[in-house]
């Protein structure tokens, strides 16, 4: 089984967001970058699918500048076999990035193509499904269960008030949600092995697309609230506020 994992490099979820002078991007000074947390579920899924199949190849594919290679090596350290770095600047238009990825994935013989559900920076939540459409392949998004047997996949995904079940033939694209698995940590041996694994660099140039970022701003601060009181004795006062002032009950 040949499995691709498409990876994004994102600021650590604990990072404090500061807007850069341009007003359209964040100030990256002092920000630690990590593999997108949802992509770690994809990496783990790839590794465990390969282990289960008893063979095959896992490839991490990432679009971005030089810095993305460090993130890719985290995937290699976790156990992914090799990397393909699509070297270029991602477009603000997710469809353009999907086109670049699809171009690379097309005809490369992948049985399974995995993405994270979304990247925690731009929260675009579209690349995986777009790549599948462009490749005319089946796609299930935000899967929390993925079983593969005899060239077919059965999946589960959370929908409001239930678990949706679906199935498709391979090759197929899946985007991975929390709950699918528990990603392993890269072992120390894995970290040492990662730098010896092949990492192929291909220049790409995503198109400008149809999306322009006009502004990036911090959300308005919530007005300071108040402590209504202490203990159960404060409940009547709280109820009064919720019914008459806030009018939510």
């Amino acid at each position: 089984m040949k499995i691709a994992v498409c990876l994004r490099r994102v600021p650590d979820t604990t990072a404090k967001i500061v807007i850069a002078g341009s007003g359209t991007v964040i100030d990256e000074t002092g920000v630690k970058f990590v593999p997108n947390p949802y992509d770690e579920y994809a990496i783990e899924a790839a590794l465990s699918l390969k282990e289960k199949a008893g063979g095959g190849e896992t490839v991490v594919v990432a679009l971005g500048g030089d810095a993305v290679q460090e993130t890719m090596r985290t995937a290699l350290a976790m156990g992914i076999d090799r990397g393909v770095h699509l070297h270029g600047t991602p477009s603000p238009d997710g469809l353009e990035n999907a086109r670049v990825l699809a171009e690379h994935l097309r005809g490369a013989g992948y049985d399974v193509m995995l993405f994270g559900k979304f990247a925690v920076d731009d929260c675009g939540q579209q690349t995986g499904a777009m790549v599948a459409e462009l490749l005319e392949l089946p796609c299930a998004t935000a899967v929390t269960k993925l079983d593969i047997a005899a060239g077919r996949a059965t999946v589960e995904r959370e929908v409001e008030g239930g678990i949706e079940q679906a199935a498709c033939a391979l090759p197929a694209v899946f985007t991975c949600d929390k709950g699918l698995n528990n990603p392993r940590l890269p072992s120390l041996k894995g970290i040492m092995a990662a730098k010896k694994k092949p990492l192929e660099v291909t220049p790409v140039a995503p198109g400008a697309g149809s999306v322009t970022v006009a502004a990036l701003a911090l959300p308005p601060e919530r007005a300071a609230g108040r402590i209504v009181g202490e203990g159960a004795a404060a409940v009547p006062a709280l109820m009064q506020l919720l019914t008459t002032e806030a009018k939510v009950i």
Binding site: E70, R73, T74, A77, L185, P186, S187, L188, I191, M192, A194, K195
Partner: peptide, 10 residues
């Protein structure tokens, strides 16, 4: 180095 940071992080 990148490996040293990766070891620390893991």
């Amino acid at each position: 180095s990148e490996e040293e940071r990766a070891v620390r992080d893991t």
